[in-house]
């Protein structure tokens, strides 16, 4: 790691001010920043520790929704009984991420800012070309080993996948990311790589995430997070889905459905085409299969990652089936039992 100076911020304002300086970086859980500093990807001159700030933690849940402080730990939120009850997909996305040690360190705010696991991005000594690290230098991943790279939302500049789990659940349930100065819909918070893959979110220099609000909804309450990966635990997703579902009173027609995809896209990916195809429809296996395929419209593979195009719709389908049968008598749902 580069030699840096360490500043323990006394207030959010002080942190924000200090973070505006060139070379300054905020330190919360540290699980991304210190990791990338060791890889030589992050080279801060000043590290501003915000973990001791008060007022940025806490979890509050009421009938309208949840408010989660930016410094709440992933593990804390994953185990919160109210979050588990009102937003199962949120809790599950967190408990299936990383390991308990990392979840005890990483904050909710920091988790949204975790960087890609693209191995080319993480190895600057051997692969100097990376548009994310060094805009305009090229992309080393293209033409290389791409098994874990994105098939959705890619550009000619970058095919790195977003590694998030929680972010999917937030995007699916219309969460709002709050900073000191504004509120941004989660789906708008993350940026597609386009020509500027170095810019991953809308955050401005010095802008600090203070919290996340998630509106309550029937779909969020009846939701799940499904993560498929090579290893049973402690691994990023090959493909994952956050899905929530609300039926009409008949118990079989879809009133509201939310679908977001992970492990396959350059940003947490809301699959609105799938949602649109199913809303108002009677949910059955044929409808699900037809709809989930829509998630892959426009997908582009780069050799090794082609399997994701087949896998992701199956993950969504399984997740939909799970929430469709979870608290509704199976007899009410045609062909799903």
């Amino acid at each position: 790691m580069r030699d840096f100076s360490y500043l323990r911020a006394a207030s959010t304002e002080e942190a924000s001010q200090a973070a505006r300086e060139a070379g300054a970086m905020l330190l919360a859980g540290g699980t991304t920043l210190l990791d990338l500093a060791k890889c030589g990807v992050a080279e801060p001159d000043t590290v501003i520790d915000i973990t001791h700030l008060s007022g940025l933690g806490g979890i509050a849940v009421d009938a309208n929704g949840a408010m989660i402080g930016a410094l709440a730990k992933m593990g804390e939120v994953a185990d919160d009984p109210l979050i588990k009850a009102a937003f199962p997909a949120v809790a599950e996305s967190l408990s299936l991420a990383a390991s308990q040690q990392l979840r005890n360190m990483a904050t909710i705010g920091g988790n949204l800012l975790q960087r890609t696991r693209c191995t080319y991005f993480r190895d600057p000594a051997v692969f100097p070309a990376c548009n994310k690290r060094n805009p305009g230098s090229g992309c080393s991943a293209m033409g290389g080993v791409t098994r874990n790279h994105a098939v959705l939302g890619t550009s000619e500049a970058c095919i790195a996948s977003n590694p998030g789990d929680l972010a999917l659940a937030l995007v699916a349930f219309d969460a709002v990311i709050e900073t000191g100065s504004r509120k941004v819909a989660a789906d708008d918070f993350f940026l597609l790589p386009g020509h500027t893959p170095e810019k991953e979110t809308v955050l401005q220099p010095g802008e600090i995430i203070t919290g996340i609000s998630i509106p309550a909804s029937a779909a969020a309450k009846n939701s799940t997070y499904l993560k498929v990966r090579d290893r049973q635990s402690y691994e990023f997703a090959a493909a994952s889905a956050a899905v929530g579902l609300e039926f009409e009173m008949d118990g079989k027609t879809v009133r509201d459905i939310r679908v977001a995809l992970g492990g396959v896209a350059t940003k947490p990916w809301r699959a609105r085409a799938v949602e649109k195809a199913l809303i108002g429809k009677v949910l059955d296996l044929v409808a699900i299969e037809k709809a989930t395929k829509l998630a892959m419209e426009g997908a582009v593979s780069h050799g090794d990652n082609h399997y994701k195009i087949d896998l992701a719709p199956r993950v969504i389908a399984r997740a939909i089936m799970k929430v469709a049968t979870s608290n509704v008598a199976p007899s009410n749902v045609g062909g799903l039992a």
């Binding site: 696991r117 090579d230 290893r231 049973q232 635990s233």
Partner: peptide, 9 residues
Amino acid sequence: DYLVPTNSD
């Protein structure tokens, strides 16, 4: 990235 089994596997 080089995956060895975890306890869960």
